[in-house]
């Protein structure tokens, strides 16, 4: 019980991670692949934020009566990772637009089929 209750946000992070990973591998639609990649990356954000949490801790602000703070460093790190994630998604979608212009489809199998004879 402790394993589930005490660590439930880690479980959720792992389930999301595997779900996202599965979408990336199993879907042939390029947009869906990017969606899967996003879920995968978001799960890592959850993982980082969870590790910064301190029981009963508040936001790290210096004020009278506040003595227990959550660790702000993982939050700051994950802000950077979110920016990286946004850049990756933007670039991925831009590539999909170009692929769609060149092939007229965003389905992986149809793209491969078009390249076969060449």
């Amino acid at each position: 019980m402790e394993l589930v209750q005490g660590l439930y946000n880690y479980w959720i992070a792992m389930i999301l991670m595997m779900a996202g990973f599965y979408v990336v591998i199993s879907r042939g639609n390029l947009i869906k692949k990017i969606v899967g990649l996003n879920i995968f990356q978001t799960s890592v954000f959850l993982l980082y934020i969870s590790m910064g949490a301190v029981e009963g801790g508040t936001a790290p602000i210096l004020e009278e009566g506040l003595t227990r703070f959550s660790n702000p460093l993982p939050h700051v790190l994950i802000l950077t990772a979110i920016v990286v994630g946004v850049a990756t998604t933007a670039l991925g979608l831009a590539l999909i637009v170009r692929i769609n212009e060149a092939y007229g489809t965003v389905e992986e199998e149809e793209i491969h089929a078009q390249d076969e004879p060449a």
């Binding site: 590539l95 060149a102 092939y103 390249d115």
Partner: peptide, 17 residues
């Protein structure tokens, strides 16, 4: 070549993972 686009996309997925 247009296959550069799909190659870059495939690399993007694998590289980001």
């Amino acid at each position: 070549d247009r296959r550069a686009l799909t190659a870059a996309f495939q690399y993007l997925i694998m590289g980001t993972l």
